[in-house]
Simulated scan of single mutants.
Amino acid sequence: MIEITIRVKPACAQRLAALLRTAAELEADRGQAKTYRGAARRIERAPGIRRPAARTQRPAPARQKSTRPPVARPHRYTPRVQRPTGRAIDERAVQRVVSGDHPLPVLSRVEARTACWYLTQLGCPASEIAERVRIAKRTVHRWRAEDRQAVTS
């Protein structure tokens, strides 16, 4: 997922919201269309933006019921970040993440844990570590607890 911040004048914001709604209507992927509509709604709710006139709802086209039984589709898990695989640790990539040199590389799981350890030693908060290493904040807390447990055992 890519997050983008765009600053526009209030006069242009209304047009951008309308374009997003048009893109949502043309989008074949329902999830992406929902994302476009949500972005348009957030733009319209922003302070200083005039609210659009109420839109008339068109009736949904009548759907014909299918006679075929539903097909069970396998659930595919897609992680947030496609991490490289391999046992070797790329120290340069880890040091780039620790020093905050952008663009930050995507680290393997072992490299991410190493970078988390270094950033913890530097006193960085869990939220910053999670953002840099591209892991959940809860994972940072769990790894820290596991490291403390290993030291005390």
Rank of each mutant, 00 (worst) to 15 (best):
P70F: 02
G31D: 13
P125R: 11
R134L: 01
Q64W: 08
S153Y: 06
Y118M: 06
V94R: 07
P52E: 03
T67I: 06
A11D: 15
A112L: 00
L107A: 10
A18I: 03
R113C: 00
I43M: 03
Q149D: 09
E91S: 10
A28L: 01
A62L: 12
Q82R: 15
R41L: 07
R109V: 15
C116H: 07
R63F: 02
Q149C: 02
A11V: 13
I43H: 05
R83D: 11
R144M: 10
Y77Q: 05
S108H: 09
L20Y: 02
K9Y: 09
A145V: 01
T35H: 11
T67F: 02
V81R: 12
E128Q: 13
T152P: 01
R87F: 09
W117V: 04
I2E: 09
R7K: 11
R142V: 10
R109H: 13
V151P: 01
R148S: 11
V106Y: 01
G86W: 08
R109T: 13
R37I: 04
R144N: 14
G100Y: 03
P10E: 09
V140E: 09
R55H: 05
I4R: 05
W117P: 00
A53K: 06
D101W: 06
T120D: 12
P125T: 07
A136K: 04
D90F: 02
S127T: 11
E91T: 07
G100L: 07
A11P: 01
P125F: 02
P84K: 13
P59E: 10
L104T: 02
L26Y: 02
Y118S: 06
T5I: 12
G86H: 08
T56H: 04
T139H: 04
T67R: 14
Q82V: 12
V94W: 04
R30N: 08
L16T: 03
E146Q: 12
A53G: 14
A145G: 02
P84A: 14
E27A: 12
P52H: 09
Q149H: 08
R92T: 09
Y36D: 01
R92G: 13
A150M: 10
R142N: 13
D90M: 08
R51S: 15
S108N: 15
R144D: 06
A130Y: 05
K137R: 14
Y118T: 01
T35Q: 12
G123N: 06
A115P: 00
A126S: 13
K34Q: 12
Q121G: 15
R55V: 11
T56N: 05
E128L: 15
I2L: 11
R113F: 00
V71W: 00
V106F: 05
Q57A: 10
E25G: 13
A53F: 01
A60Y: 05
R7L: 10
K137C: 06
A115N: 00
D147S: 08
Q82I: 14
A145I: 00
A136H: 10
C12T: 00
V81H: 12
V81K: 08
V140G: 02
T56G: 06
A17K: 03
R37Q: 07
V151E: 15
K9M: 14
I89Q: 03
E146I: 04
R138P: 00
S127F: 03
I2F: 07
R148F: 03
P70I: 04
L119S: 02
T114G: 02
A33N: 06
G38S: 11
L122M: 08
